[in-house]
Amino acid sequence: MSHRDKEKVCIKTRKVFDWVTRQVDLPVISKSDDHLKDFFKCDGSTIDDICKFLDEQNDPEDFTVVCKIDEESIICQEIIQPDGRLNVTVTLPNGDEVKLQKVKVLVKGQANVAILDENDKVICRSKKPITFVTAQTFILCAPDGTDVECEVTFSECDASLICTNDFKQLDISITLCLDVQVEADVKLEVEARICKPREEDIRGVDICPDQKFPPQCPEVFPAR
């Protein structure tokens, strides 16, 4: 492409001001005693004592407890602060000081627990979804006029049921990977040329008109 083929154009696009990822390990969610009572439903019936039920069925070691996060239930969004994002001054590794903003993000969702037999058949499942929630604080380049976009790119849930003489407890651990971007619509001046479709190698009768674009006005916009 020669320099003569190019011209200055103004485009509107989404600019990323900052972008970070973070692994979040939520505190373990435990259900025991009265909280575990009536937690599971097995074969269509509510179970008062899940440990006793499993013991009566077969060897407890033949059962597997699994946890699955409902991806559709996940909410990841900025927590709007009444006075706006707080400005903070931080020192970079090279010693320079820069003003950034404190951003708070809320992540919320639901998970379900199931018990499988030795053939991986579901015999029990939680009656209601387990709700998890976390609030995370980030220090980002997020000046006024920018939007915070949050996404959970990966989620993992593990569950363990303890049935002993001393404990009857269900423990649930959840790990999330957060992707947080600060974005805003901007207009950029770039040096470019108008694109045209390539020539098709094999084609029949061509009835399609040539692609036409509105005439540009580089003499007045973008301003020199």
Rank of each mutant, 00 (worst) to 15 (best):
D5L: 05
K102H: 01
K41H: 11
W19L: 12
I207R: 05
V205E: 11
E71C: 04
D34R: 02
V190W: 04
N112D: 11
I79A: 13
L170A: 01
R224P: 00
C150N: 08
F17M: 08
V186I: 13
K108Q: 05
D144N: 07
F167D: 11
A114H: 09
G204N: 09
G109Y: 00
S30Y: 04
H3G: 07
V186R: 08
A135I: 03
C195D: 14
P215R: 12
R224E: 02
V66N: 03
S160R: 01
V9F: 09
K12D: 11
E56Q: 15
D5N: 06
T64S: 14
H35N: 13
D201I: 15
D43M: 14
L178M: 07
T13K: 14
V152P: 04
A192F: 11
E72M: 09
I74R: 06
S126V: 06
Q23F: 06
L26W: 02
I207Y: 09
D25S: 14
I174Y: 00
L170P: 00
T153G: 10
I115T: 09
P93H: 09
M1H: 08
E56W: 11
C177W: 08
Q81N: 14
D117L: 00
Q216I: 13
D38M: 11
F221G: 15
R14G: 06
S155V: 12
D5Q: 13
E199K: 11
L92E: 01
T131L: 15
E61H: 06
V113S: 03
D171M: 00
I11C: 09
D33N: 08
I174N: 02
R193G: 13
D5W: 10
V90H: 07
C217P: 13
C163H: 00
D120G: 10
P129T: 09
C177H: 03
V88A: 08
D147Q: 15
Q169A: 04
I80P: 03
P129R: 06
I194H: 15
P222Y: 01
C124G: 09
C150R: 04
D147F: 15
